[in-house]
Amino acid sequence: MMQAIYDRLKDRFQLGALDVRSRKGLAFVDLRREFLRPVLTELRDVEGFTHLILLTAVDWIEDERFQLTYLLNNRQKNLDLGLRLRLDRNLAIGETIHDLWPTAATYQRELREMFGIAFPGSPRVDEEFILEGWTDMPPYRRDFDTLAYSQQTHADREGRETSDPREFMKQILYPKD
């Protein structure tokens, strides 16, 4: 069923290969940026993918890109379809879809705050969402080091000390070898 939908859209929207490796009823497909809106509209209005499950990002920092994942659901056919869109990590500007799904504005506001991905035109996208008074880099980016942040912000409890079994045994049993 997913294959049939894919076949209908593939050529018109130059879709990438259909990735069905995960579970039954779920597929992912790579999407070119310029086709985001037409594909989403077609999927929603023609193919029955009326439910936007979620919109989120994955930071592939080593490839210098963000992946935006638009996860849609067709309830009648019990199909979940994930559209993957690449964004240049150094020019992280996405296209707002709040007019297609108003709830997308919330996701976009979060992505703006947590990943630093801009969505021009999305309502209240620059308002603080979860973080208030945050001045560091967007914290869900891969290069934000939570451990380092925690070590800078909080002190360790005093008196904590641990030993590695191997090193400890060497120290006691065969320090000279």
């Binding site: 603080e128 969402f129 973080l131 208030e132 914290p139 869900y140 939570t146 451990l147």
Partner: peptide, 14 residues
């Protein structure tokens, strides 16, 4: 919201 944000999704990455 944000009164109990602990960044679970990020915590899981490490």
């Amino acid at each position: 919201v944000g009164y109990l944000h602990r960044g679970f999704e990020k915590l899981m990455e490490r």
